[in-house]
Design a protein around this nucleic acid. Structure first.
Length: 423
RNA sequence: GGAGAGAUGGCUGAGUGGUCGAAAGCGGCGGUCUUGAAAACCGUUGACGGGAAACCGUCCGGGGGUUCGAAUCCCUCUCUCUCCGCCA
């Protein structure tokens, strides 16, 4: 959510900035509602003031032992008018707020203009895609070929878009999680944290998944809870309705959770394998920073995610999401894409974003600025460090040999009890 | 699941219908003292919204109600704590 002051002071300019990401701000409706709001609010406050003044004088008269009956008679008519005005004000404010909650973040000036992922500029590459003297298999053939990955099994248990893994494959998957958590806590200064996997609607509103993206979520109606689509939701919402002292900020959290996504609207997309599942593991990086530090923090955080791939010796590239591809809540996003030999292209494995104060405003997440002594919205950031399922896919496909064996990269061997190859 | 107690400012905690936005303490900020710091002492210090400003309004867990007037009374929801039961 952007600063409501923009509606009053810079409506046209804001509409211009939002149009860059293809969002058409309804300037007329907003302008009208805002004018209406102002009128009603002023009238309401006048009535409230009158009531307060009169009530106080009644109190004084009573204390002085005077007859208050004539004073009471004077106030009689006030009640209905006030109730009416308050009701109107509430309706108007709700309307405005509903509109505001549906407006995406304003892209940062450094975000390139574009309409789709085709327009995302690549900013760097690391590593060299492996060259095979045989036709590389994809992770499904590799995993199933080893008998360690089973999609039919998962379909029987639940439905499509789930997987079961067995033995060394399950262990490799778990090793990746341990490795990532260790790296970020030991070398990058993150605090590991454990959080609920079910969240309430307020939390989802805070990070921006609600009200607009309800259909992407798994919902438990009995309790009105939602399965988290990412650890971003519970971790970022720790700051909701909280005021940090200056010395408590910045904060860096790393959190491993499963993630649940309904993938409504992506029927027929990545139906094969582990690329797009209803349930997957992710190690997430989340930061709370001072506003002036958030863009440096974004660069650092992206670097932390990249380090995972470097240690695993997996080739990747980094792209900046253009205005047409950037997410609803983000002001700027870098996607890290890992090389997948079977697809012969780079695929997203991490998304690192600065939300500036967009989420913080929805959450009322603030810090006390020592220079002003006043509470101020903080900035939130997050990024995958990394998506575990897709990292496993990348490992299988990049480290396969002609016989379908998988080499374990050095960084993971301690976690695999020294194992150098699967099977 | 049963019985009871509670939710107040950054934090702890008083306040049971009329200048209460709210005592006190802690913390923060400013000052005195000190070479400097600590201690002590003095002063100051809620958030949000409207307004150019003066100033005004809202807020004592959320929502609703009673009243001229609600932190205070009523209803309801959520959460926390204690005891009992059950349980990984």
């Amino acid at each position: 959510m952007f600063d409501p002051n923009r509606i009053r002071n810079q409506l046209e300019a804001t509409a211009e900035l939002l149009s860059r990401r293809g969002f058409m701000l309804d300037v007329t409706t907003l302008g009208t509602l805002e004018t209406e709001r102002k009128q009603i609010q002023i009238r309401t406050q006048e009535l409230q003031q009158e009531r307060n003044t009169r009530s106080k004088s009644i109190g004084k008269a009573k204390a002085a032992g005077e007859d208050i009956a004539p004073l009471l008679a004077e106030v009689g008519h006030l009640g209905d008018a006030l109730k009416n005005a308050e009701e109107q004000l509430r309706t108007c404010q709700t309307k405005l707020e509903d509109i505001l909650l549906g407006i995406p973040n304003i892209p940062h000036a450094s975000v390139p203009t574009g309409t789709s992922e085709e327009d995302n500029p690549e900013i760097r590459r690391w590593g060299t895609p492996p060259v095979f003297d045989f036709e590389p298999k994809d992770h499904v053939d590799l995993g199933a070929g080893l008998g360690l990955m089973d999609f039919e099994q998962a379909t029987k248990i639940t439905a499509a878009r789930f997987v079961t893994m067995t033995g060394p494959m399950a262990r490799l998957h778990r090793s990746l999680i341990q490795f990532m958590l260790d790296l970020h806590t030991r070398e990058h200064g993150y605090t590991e944290i454990y959080v609920p996997y079910l969240v309430n609607a307020d939390s989802l509103r805070g990070t921006g998944q609600l009200p607009k993206f309800k259909e992407d979520l798994f919902h438990i109606p009995e309790e009105d809870f939602y399965l988290i689509p990412t650890a971003e939701v519970p971790v970022t919402n720790m700051a909701r309705n909280h005021l940090f002292e200056a010395n408590q900020i910045p904060q860096r959290f790393v959190c491993h959770t499963p993630c649940f996504r309904s993938e409504a609207g992506s029927y027929g997309k990545d139906t094969r394998g582990m690329i797009r599942q209803h349930q997957f593991e992710k190690v997430e990086l989340v930061q709370f920073t001072r506003p002036e530090d958030s863009y440096d923090a974004l660069e650092a955080l992206t670097g932390h995610a990249e380090t995972v791939l470097q240690r695993l010796e997996l080739p990747y590239r980094v792209v900046t999401l253009c205005t047409g591809d950037i997410g609803f809540s983000a002001a700027k996003t870098y996607d890290i894409e890992v090389w997948l030999p079977a697809q012969n292209r780079y695929r997203e494995i991490s998304s690192c974003s600065n939300f500036e104060d967009f989420q913080a405003r929805r959450m009322k997440a603030r810090w006390r600025n020592p220079e002003t002594g006043k509470p101020q919205l903080l900035h939130t950031l997050n990024g995958s460090g990394l998506a575990v399922g897709r990292t496993l896919v990348a490992l299988l496909e990049n480290y396969q040999d002609a016989e379908g064996n998988i080499r374990i990269p050095d960084a993971l061997r301690p976690y695999m009890n020294g194992l150098a190859q699967i099977p």
